[in-house]
């Protein structure tokens, strides 16, 4: 028996809760884009589970009409791992921010990536703590003046994508809140990848870190300042599509478009992906967005259930009676 995929519209994923982000927040665009992707997936909405931690981005589940679980700070990947282990049929999403995922929850993020738990992690990176009013985050560039760093932050930041790559994430991508078409494509690709998929979404915080990504994302400059990593396509950028990137033994150089390397995110060797992921701070090279890595490997929940199935086949399905009848026993009359 086959069931036709359910037909949804974006509005089917709009919940009855009033959205409470600041006017102009990048989160609105992301919410809108993700709701559109949800409508296109063909996944029954009751199978969609959105898990979040704490922070502005983590209010996300309240605003989408699916199953949603707003948990505690940093722990969303661990809760989501439990959900996926309990029922591998569910389509599990984690919504998190730079503080939630990379600071308080760093451990859970890297272990979900290592275990390849089949879930999509949408990491809203605004390089600031928003909900606690503007302290520097683990992705804030050094020197930033914030309430907790009045003389400038002296902390070195993480590159979120090298962290994910280093932890073994099979799918790693980046997109931008305001580039809605790109965002939808990347989020969809992340969903369709079997296994752990992390998408860093550069998200502008209008209140505490406005313009954090302006050097890359401004409408006028972005064609020259971004390069979109498309599987099987040359690494071409520029308003006129005239420039390209080529890997040298020790670096990446800008060349004419027709000399650009072709991008392969499925390359078993992650070295090139690492090098591109490091280009996320002021740099003469354009900022790479799109799919850095898409490599398949065994997924945790499937392996766990497959092992249980094999053991059950071997030993027979346990019952209460077989449990009580087990072990070395003796009778007392």
């Amino acid at each position: 028996m086959t069931t036709a995929a359910p037909q949804y519209k974006k509005k089917d994923f709009v919940s009855d809760q009033e959205v409470r982000w600041c006017p102009g927040c990048g989160d609105y665009a992301i919410l809108n884009g993700v709701q559109q992707v949800f409508a296109e997936l063909g996944v029954p909405k009751e199978n969609l589970v959105v898990v979040s931690g704490i922070g502005c981005s983590s209010r996300f589940p309240y605003y989408v009409d699916t199953f949603g679980f707003h948990t505690i700070h940093g722990r969303a990947p661990a809760v989501a791992t439990g959900v996926k282990l309990a029922n591998p049929e569910l389509d599990v999403w984690v919504v998190t921010g730079d503080g939630d995922a990379l600071s308080i929850g760093g451990n859970h993020l890297i272990h979900a990536a290592r275990r390849n738990v089949d879930m999509v992690v949408l990491l809203f990176n605004n390089r600031i703590y928003g909900l606690t009013k503007g302290q520097y985050s683990p992705t804030t560039p050094p020197g930033k003046v914030t309430p907790s760093s009045p003389f400038g932050s002296v902390d070195a930041p993480f590159h979120p994508l090298t962290l994910a790559l280093g932890a073994g994430a099979g799918f790693v991508a980046r997109t931008v809140d305001t580039q809605i078409k790109h965002l939808r494509e990347v989020v969809r690709a992340a969903h369709d990848h079997p296994g752990f998929a992390l998408v860093e979404i550069l998200q502008n915080c209008v209140i505490f870190n406005d313009g954090a990504f302006a050097d890359y994302t401004g409408k006028e400059i972005r064609d020259d300042r971004q390069v979109d990593l498309r599987p099987g396509q040359p690494l071409v950028f520029g308003k006129e599509h005239d420039k390209g990137l080529r890997f040298t033994p020790h670096s990446i150089e800008v060349v004419a478009a027709d000399e650009a390397d072709v991008w392969d995110p499925a390359d078993p060797n992650a070295t090139k992906a690492f090098r591109l992921a490091l280009c996320d701070e002021p740099h003469e090279l354009p900022l790479p967005i799109g799919v850095f890595r898409a490599v398949e490997r065994p997924c945790l929940a499937r392996e766990v259930h497959e092992q249980a199935r094999r053991v059950t086949e071997q030993l027979g399905a346990g019952t209460l009676q077989s449990l009580l009848d087990s072990g070395d026993r003796w009778e007392v009359a």
Partner: peptide
Amino acid sequence: IAAVTAALGASYAGR
């Protein structure tokens, strides 16, 4: 923490 939150996630999903 992951142990307790994963257990809670499993309960949420019906186990």
